[in-house]
């Protein structure tokens, strides 16, 4: 319960930010942090709590994004409905990928690579069919208004992503305190042992991937509505898959607050290196990469690992050593 109170307090504090931040640019950074935290939390459900490393979260992100865009542009369907459709379709894609891989017992790096391949297949398909606009991409008409799930100001988008992200964090809090979460942790730590205890590993993993797909899809819906343009590379390209896993791993896998810490840390590092280094192409990104390496060298358990050192209560769920 205490963790829930902390969670609600943190999100309440975040909700006040639009009132105190007068800079649209700064508010945009906060929005992009929440968006990264959402993507990261989506990955964390499956990767951190479930121990299934996905390299293909772009599959869910892209499906959510394309669903809301295509329904609006090709069929004139309101994006609020598109949002629901996007979430459902992303869950369906997740269920399909989960079924195909968990049924055949793929784990570890095999699972990682197969998810990557599924995302690539979707990228190629979206590049080849008419209704996505193929390589030309798809442009959502600019029509600000809450009815169109577009907002005049960044504050509107802030509350959209804030609610998506809060929902994801609440879901993960629930996972941490439910039978489902306990089964998921058991499967992650030792699948055979979990089975012996009567856990239906397949069902548990399916639950995790579908929930993960839901929030990945919502991140895609948000992206589409915020930036209004998609092409196959933006929607299903590897960049999204990488960001999804980077955020929670840096923050602390299998912890409730890890994705938030990771999102804030990564964006801060990225902003600061660019501010400090200036406009020589390449150098600021190189330093960003070096800082990533440094973080891994010195913070082997992510940022949440430091917190855990002090508080003991916020014990990272995924601390069992998995040998390299």
């Amino acid at each position: 319960m205490r963790q829930l109170l902390v969670l609600l307090a943190v999100f309440s504090a975040i909700a006040v930010l639009p009132a105190v931040i007068t800079s649209e640019f700064s508010l945009n950074i906060v929005i992009m942090m929440l968006y990264a935290a959402l993507l990261g939390q989506a990955w964390n459900i499956l990767g951190g709590y479930g121990g299934q490393f996905s390299f293909g979260h772009a599959a869910y992100f892209g499906t959510g994004a394309y669903a809301v865009a295509v329904l609006q542009v090709q069929l004139g369907i309101n994006p609020w409905i598109g949002m629901v459709a996007g979430a459902l379709l992303a869950m369906a894609v997740a269920a399909f990928i989960g079924f195909a891989t968990f049924r055949t017992g793929l784990r570890g790096s095999y699972f990682a690579l197969v998810t990557l391949a599924f995302a690539e297949v979707l990228r190629i398909l979206s590049n080849s069919v008419d209704f996505t606009g193929a390589g030309v991409g798809i442009l959502i008409p600019l029509a600000p208004g809450p009815g169109n799930l577009q907002f005049e100001t960044k504050t509107g988008f802030f509350f959209l992503i804030w609610s998506f992200t809060l929902a994801a964090f609440l879901a993960v809090w629930w996972i941490g305190h439910s039978r489902f979460g306990a089964s998921l942790a058991a499967v992650r730590d030792n699948e055979e042992a979990a089975r012996a205890l009567g856990v239906n590993a397949f069902r548990v993993k399916m639950g995790a991937i579908i929930l993960s797909g839901l929030f990945g899809g919502l991140a895609g819906v948000f992206y589409a509505q915020y930036f209004l343009y998609l092409d196959p590379y933006i929607a299903y390209g590897p960049a999204i898959s990488v960001e999804s896993l980077l955020v929670p791993i840096i923050g602390g896998m299998g912890t409730l607050f890890g994705p938030l810490l990771g999102a804030v840390a990564l964006h801060t590092v990225s902003e600061l290196t660019r501010e400090l280094i200036g406009d020589v192409p390449g150098i600021s990104l190189a330093i960003y990469g070096a800082l990533l390496v440094g973080m891994v060298l010195f913070l082997p358990r992510g940022l949440a690992g430091i917190a855990a050192r002090f508080t003991r209560r916020n014990k990272p769920a995924g601390t069992e050593t998995r040998h390299a």
Binding site: I29, H267, S270, E271, R274, D279, S284
Partner: peptide
């Protein structure tokens, strides 16, 4: 990751 830069 979105990053910003304002150089000059």
């Amino acid at each position: 990751m979105t990053g910003q830069s304002m150089k000059k």
